[in-house]
């Protein structure tokens, strides 16, 4: 399964994502520069974290108009697998591939620590290998991860099973104290209606090896691989 890591000026988790795919999962992977206009030959695209275009204007607002994004959008609309992590999530929202918006953390602080994510839905290629309610220990690192969508959108997402991860305590309780950024209903990750595009603020690529303090991030990628092999 061929992965592509999209690199914008200001991306800074691209190497981590590349390392996870190549060295930990042992799958083929290439970088895709933001000026590239062709993403054919890839099976899964990763939009990594960072500060694309310096976060000028709004996080992801300018990156979303990079030449590569036209083909990323077309790839996603035709059912291709896309994961946006942190800033990549913000870019996917700005591009209209995922519902809602991410803005300033309620605390106004940059939050950088391990969180527990509760798997809310396993009807996605990213979580089909996990059980609902399973906790994943994965770190966050962001100042603008406060998830917002209007009430109608939230209701629709809930009904369609588009809420994939919620922040929880180590015991699996979805509470205000487990919410690092003010996200509505503790949302940490969502997918589109077709379930082939995932956006999440926490960094699974930073939790793929024991040396990093958690290997839970790997489970998301292993789920993708398993799903891919099953579909072939």
């Amino acid at each position: 399964m061929k992965f592509g890591v999209v690199v914008f000026p200001g991306s800074n988790c691209d190497l981590d994502a590349y390392h996870l795919v190549k060295d930990v999962l042992g799958e083929p992977v290439d970088y895709i520069w933001h000026q590239e206009e062709n993403v054919s030959g890839f099976d899964c695209l990763i939009l990594p974290g960072g500060f694309s275009y310096g976060d000028y204007l709004r996080c992801g607002a300018i990156a979303r108009f990079s030449p590569v994004m036209k083909s990323v959008v077309a790839f996603a609309r035709s059912g291709g697998l896309v994961i946006g992590i942190c800033n990549g999530f913000q870019v996917l929202q700005e591009a209209g591939l995922l519902p809602g918006a991410l803005y300033r953390n309620l605390s106004l602080q940059f939050r950088c620590y391990f969180t527990y994510l509760k798997v809310e839905n396993r009807q996605t290629p990213f979580t089909s290998g996990l059980e609902v309610g399973r906790l994943l220990k994965i770190p966050i690192a962001h100042g603008e991860g406060n998830y917002y969508a209007d009430a109608d959108t939230l209701r629709r997402m809930e009904a369609n099973g588009q809420i994939v991860f919620r922040y929880a305590t180590a015991d699996g309780e979805v509470t205000d104290t487990a919410n690092p950024n003010g996200s509505l209903t503790n949302i940490a990750g969502v997918c589109n209606e077709m379930k082939n595009v995932l956006g999440m603020m926490p960094h699974p690529e930073r939790a793929g090896e024991a040396a990093l303090g958690s290997q839970d991030g790997r489970l998301i990628f292993e789920s993708i691989l398993k799903n891919w092999e099953g579909a072939r």
């Binding site: 108009f65 929202q93 700005e94 803005y103 917002y148």
Partner: peptide, 8 residues
């Protein structure tokens, strides 16, 4: 298109 995010 660019200057604002109509969602928020």
């Amino acid at each position: 298109r660019l200057l604002t995010n109509p969602v928020i």
